[in-house]
Design a binder for these strands. Structure first.
Lengths: 227, 227
DNA sequence: TAGATTGTTAATCGATTAACAATC
DNA sequence: TAGATTGTTAATCGATTAACAATC
């Protein structure tokens, strides 16, 4: 007896376990929804989203259904509502102060790149060990000495760190970020870094992206479409 | 009768079909192997590579076996040989002249980033539409007007293009790259671009990477380790 | 030889697709 | 109402793991 109210919607707290690939598609749905809204659309459907991104409609519905009931049978999804829901799931419905470690070419570029500002991320402070760079302000972001990571990180409630230092320094920077209480790291250095289990990590290696493209081009015909 | 010579090793020409995830791990193996060589190692094993990267030894062997017989039972893999083999598979055993489209923050940073130079990629020319930028030389790379894409692209035998322009311009830049005979595109703009089937594409969106990290941090405990 | 390690097969696990009742 | 579209189940497909004979 008793499934009167059926099972609870439970938005954004997956009971079971979310398949790896689902979360990355969630980000793509969000990006597409934001474009749809900008273009004046109020609602969309699993088949429209699927067509735009090259996925099947079934996959879109299944992905979203992992997290709750966001659609309306016969109608589709309200863009606004779905955007809010996905942001909540991804955790980007809040403000994320971020630390940038390294102010070389890549670090400076990321400081000037406004792309992720819109998604709730905000670079609150930058760090370097070069005395020539410490004390400067780049794109409105103050550069501190790496030794000040603990203090400044705590003051700004920084939870995420971006590593944009040369490969040989990446692991030791990662260790210091962990010691400073950071919870997640995006590692732009082309090296594998090892972290405690409770620290989350995403790696971005531009050489690897190019290699994937190179493979896709070279093995074209036999293979697939790389992305 | 007759499987005397068994089946041909057939390095780097997969008869069947290479699973999607295998190729991205191949790049990680390559990166790790290069670090091992720099550290003075001459040989390695599937279990060493697996441990370094967090994969099982069986997975490492299976991934490599898609492309040929590179190891030696009882011995392991010679780092040098395996590096050569993987580079051949990925297509990075040759020179890849690359075009950078867009010389804003991100484009300039990528021009200065030496990371992928070592893997066979070389930015041969940059392009922009801003008259203030055209004619300049950034990090040794000449900036041409986008209208010169055909000519310059052909002269430099450019096969790959990196799109580092604002999102609204990305699709039209992509179209022009295709028209100029480019075969593959890395798209850094936070937008989905549509391309003919024979053009390969890899998307890199920094906001999306941060969202993946944010999700992993927020849903920590229940979930996995994001990368 | 004994110990180590590969390449490969079979078994397990997980993710995608197709189909459809429920709903608007 | 008829047409559209969801959420969900069952069937299919693909990828990972475990185990082991072959090899050095």
């Amino acid at each position: 007896m008793s499934d009167r109210k059926s099972r609870p919607p439970a938005a954004s707290s997956p009971d079971a376990a979310v398949p790896k690939a689902v979360v990355s598609r969630l980000s793509l749905y969000l990006r597409e929804l934001q474009h749809l809204v900008r273009d004046g659309h109020q609602r969309t459907s699993s088949s429209q989203l699927g067509t735009l991104l090259g996925f099947s409609d079934a996959q879109v519905r299944k992905d979203l259904a992992y997290f709750g009931h966001f659609g309306h049978p016969g109608i589709g999804y309200r863009c606004d509502d779905l955007i809010k829901a996905i942001r909540k799931i991804l955790g980007t419905d809040r403000d994320w102060p971020v630390a940038m470690i390294g102010t070389g070419n890549l670090g400076r570029a990321l400081l000037g790149y406004k792309g992720f500002t819109h998604q709730g991320f905000r670079i609150a402070a930058a760090f370097d060990v070069d005395p020539q760079r410490v004390g400067a302000t780049i794109e409105g972001v103050r550069v501190f000495h790496l030794d000040q990571l603990d203090t400044v990180g705590h003051d700004h409630k920084i939870k995420l760190g971006l590593i944009a230092v040369p490969a040989p320094a990446a692991q030791s920077v990662a260790d210091r970020l962990v010691a400073a209480g950071i919870e997640g790291i995006v590692n732009f250095a082309p090296v594998t870094i090892t972290l405690p289990d409770h620290i989350r990590q995403v790696g971005v290696d531009l050489a690897i992206e190019l290699e994937q493209l190179s493979f896709a081009v070279v093995s074209r015909g036999a293979g697939d479409g790389a992305d």
